[in-house]
């Protein structure tokens, strides 16, 4: 990839990250950490690409590890985040059950 374009992507993504978090209230900091943990689970896609290219046994084993760990990151991160967010209810909707 063209280096300068990559640098622009990095810069814009970094500002996006800073702006996105600035609005988050302290009560959601733990879920946020967990949510961002889930999002870097996208690394599993990279793991799949290298496993798909792997040829020697070493490459295949390491590639397999990459997919395994990445998938664990994505799925575990998602379930943990969802379990936390599920519990946040306001006094208005706490007795309404699963209406939303």
């Amino acid at each position: 990839m063209e280096g300068w374009i990559a640098l622009y992507i990095f810069m814009l993504a970094a500002f996006t990250g800073i702006e996105v978090i600035r609005r988050v209230p302290a009560i959601l900091h733990t879920p946020l950490m967990s949510g961002s943990n889930f999002i870097h689970g996208i690394v599993v896609v990279g793991g799949m690409v290298v496993l798909g290219m792997a040829e020697t046994n070493t490459e295949i084993v390491v590639g397999f590890v990459a997919v395994f760990l990445g998938a664990g990151n994505a799925v575990g991160g998602y379930v943990v985040t969802d379990r936390m967010l599920e519990m946040f209810k306001s006094s208005g909707n706490r007795n309404e059950g699963d209406k939303s």
């Binding site: 990839m1 990559a6 992507i9 990095f10 993504a13 970094a14 500002f15 996006t16 990250g17 800073i18 996105v20 978090i21 600035r22 900091h29 946020l32 950490m33 961002s36 943990n37 999002i39 870097h40 996208i42 690394v43 896609v45 990279g46 690409v49």
Partner: peptide, 19 residues
């Protein structure tokens, strides 16, 4: 060369640093 990984990774990296 997967921009989605770059964006997701850097957004989390920047947000995580602020956090």
């Amino acid at each position: 060369e997967i921009p989605a990984l770059m964006i997701a990774g850097i957004v989390v990296g920047a947000a995580g640093t602020v956090l």
